[in-house]
Amino acid sequence: MSNNTIQGELLAEPAARAPTRGDRSSLAAQMLLSLRSVPVFLAFVVLTVVSLLAVFAPFLIRADPIAIDPLQRFAGVSAEHWLGNDAFGRDVYSRLLFGARVSLIVGLGAAAASLVVGLIIGVVAGYIRFADTFIMRVMDGIMAIPSILLAIALVSLTGASLVTVLVAITVPEIPRVVRLVRSIILNVRSEAYVEAAISLGTPTYRLLIRHMVPNTVAPLIVQGTFIFASAILTEATLSFLGAGLPTEIPSWGNMMADGRMYFQLYPSLVLYPGIILAFTLLSVNILGDVLRDVLDPKMAKRT
């Protein structure tokens, strides 16, 4: 970024560098290299552990995470209940493991859905001129509604379930993906190699698939990690406010919502899921930054 002082000389080839097949192995190497930094390594470990716990939760739990035991309300830490019990006598440890599951499902689902839908709409907006204005108006409208309110309203209107929560989280993320894709398509459109392909008589669909869409892949992967984090956060927020997943589902947000009333007496009921949530998000964001630095140096500079 500060190479400007040498102008063209050293950088005699200011090529529009995009990762090519030849560069791919070095990409992997760069990512491995970044693991040498302590925070990145820790983030990698945390995320791996959380994912493993989530995947193998059914084999690791100590008790049924939704079984209520009125006699064991607020039971303390014991050999049986590693992290104690909650207000309904449910095992906190087991609920935390299942909470990881819920978070990962929501995160992955929302990221995948918003990327796919956003990519399609974005390509249409970026390439078809007359659709552009209309699509972007609608996107502006959705973007202007604070995402949490949009999600709260959608969930409360359609009833709480995993699917509605997923939809409610995905919809507000779509406009950002659309904008990203559209701006890339618009930029690439005036690249000389795209114009060259046009004058070679390349039909539109091939132009898009071969020359334009591949440019969106790296930025979309990066964007995907941030949507993943933001979806986990939004689910927790919704559940915490009581407008998320059905209360019997053991998600971190629901656990915090349940624990709120007893916070002054049993702060751990809120703090345990809260802290795990924070560490998970922190890890995803750190790894997302690394991914961006490696895959998309141009965008890394910008934000």
Binding site: A236, T237, F240, M256, F263, G274, A278, L281, N285, I286
Partner: peptide
Amino acid sequence: SVLGFSIPTFVIGYLLIY
């Protein structure tokens, strides 16, 4: 800044109260 992004507002809130 990464911490600020990652720790949900309500978690910060409860940590502060605590």
